[in-house]
C-alpha cells in the first residue's frame, strides 16, 4: 500500500511536469519583449499583438515591468526586444553594446493629475516646471513612482529643472510609493496627492474617482517610446531575426497605423513616431 502511494505520486509528478513542460515547448516560435508597464496597462498590446501574430505567425510574449527593470532584464539577456520610454537610458543601453539601435516608435505625453480641490492651485496650467514649483511650495502631497521607471526618471528630471531637491524630503508632502504607475495612481487618488502619469495609462485607468488632469500641454512633458533589438553580440540566445521582424512591423506603415488606431473613449493614446527618424 505504501509503495503504491509512492508509485502514484511519482506518476502524478511525472505527468504534471510533462504537461507543464509541454506548455513551454511550444511549436510556434516566440520572442520576449521587455516592456514598460504603461503600454501593457493601457491595453495597447492586446490591440496590436493579435494583428502581428496573425500576419507573422510569431508569438510575442510581453514582460511588463518598470523601464529600469526592463532594461536590467534585457541586459541579463532575458528578452529579445526592449520597448521603453527613457531616452537617455535607452541610448546608454545601445552605447554599452547591449542593444543594436534605438528606433523611435511612438509618443504621447505626460500629465499631472490631481484632486478637484487643487490645493497647489495648478489646475489648467501648461507650464509644468512652474506647476511643480507651486506644488513643492504649497507642500501639497505628491505621489512619486520612486521605482526607477521611465516616468520616474522623467519626474526627477522635471524636479531638477524646477530646482527642487526631492531626495532631501522626508516623506512629508513628497511620497515615493516604489511601485508601478497604476499602483501609484491608486495610492495618489487615495491620499489626495498629485501624480505625474503618462496619458495612456491615465485614459485607461479605471479608478479615477473625482480626479482630473491638472497640468498638460507643456513640451517638456513629451513622452517618446523607443524600440530596441537586443544585440546578439552581447546575448548569444537573442532571436535576432524574429525580433527584427517584430520591430520592422511596428515601424511599418501598417504597424504605425495600428498604433494610431488604438483609441479609448475616442481618445488616441499613442502617436506614431517612426517617420521622424531623427528625433
Amino acid at each position: 500500500m505504501k509503495t503504491n502511494a509512492i508509485r502514484w505520486s511519482a506518476v502524478v509528478l511525472a505527468g504534471s511536469v510533462l504537461t507543464s513542460g509541454s506548455a513551454l515547448a511550444q511549436e510556434d516560435e516566440f520572442i520576449i519583449v521587455q516592456s514598460t508597464t504603461s503600454t501593457e496597462a493601457s491595453g495597447l498590446y492586446e490591440h496590436l499583438l493579435p494583428m502581428f501574430q496573425e500576419e507573422s505567425g510569431l508569438e510575442v510574449r510581453v514582460v511588463a515591468v518598470g523601464t529600469g527593470q526592463a532594461i536590467n532584464n534585457a541586459e541579463n539577456c532575458d528578452g529579445d526586444v526592449l520597448l521603453v520610454h527613457a531616452r537617455e537610458q535607452e541610448e546608454a543601453f545601445v552605447e554599452s553594446g547591449y542593444g543594436v539601435s534605438r528606433e523611435p516608435l511612438m509618443y504621447n505625453d505626460f500629465v499631472i493629475v490631481g484632486p478637484p480641490a487643487d490645493p497647489a492651485g495648478v489646475a489648467g496650467s501648461s507650464d509644468v516646471v512652474d506647476a511643480m514649483t507651486k506644488i513643492a511650495e504649497s507642500q501639497a502631497p505628491f505621489a512619486s513612482r520612486g521605482d526607477d521607471s521611465g516616468t520616474h526618471s522623467k519626474e526627477l528630471q522635471l524636479w531638477e529643472e524646477a530646482g527642487i531637491d526631492v531626495a532631501g524630503t522626508d516623506g512629508g508632502w513628497y511620497r515615493e510609493t516604489g511601485s508601478g504607475m497604476g499602483e501609484t495612481l491608486n495610492t495618489g487618488v487615495g491620499m489626495g496627492a498629485y501624480v505625474l502619469t503618462d496619458r495612456a495609462t491615465w485614459i485607461n485607468y479605471g479608478n479615477k474617482g473625482d480626479y482630473e488632469i491638472a497640468v498638460e500641454g507643456d513640451e517638456a512633458m513629451f513622452n517618446p517610446y523607443g524600440i530596441i533589438l537586443v544585440s546578439s553580440d552581447h546575448c548569444e540566445n537573442v532571436k535576432t531575426e524574429a525580433g527584427q521582424q517584430f520591430i520592422d512591423w511596428m515601424l511599418s506603415d501598417e504597424g504605425q497605423q495600428a498604433i494610431a488606431d488604438y483609441k479609448i473613449d475616442g481618445q488616441q493614446l499613442f502617436f506614431p513616431d517612426a517617420d521622424e527618424s531623427d528625433s
Binding site: 513551454l24 520576449i32 532584464n73 541579463n76 539577456c77 532575458d78 540566445n237
Partner: peptide, 17 residues
C-alpha cells in the same frame, strides 16, 4: 534562471516551469 545566471541555458525563465 536568467540568461545571465547559471541555469540560463535551460531556458526556463518566463515559463510555467
Amino acid at each position: 534562471l536568467s540568461n545571465a545566471g547559471v541555469l540560463g541555458p535551460l531556458q526556463l525563465l518566463y515559463t510555467p516551469t
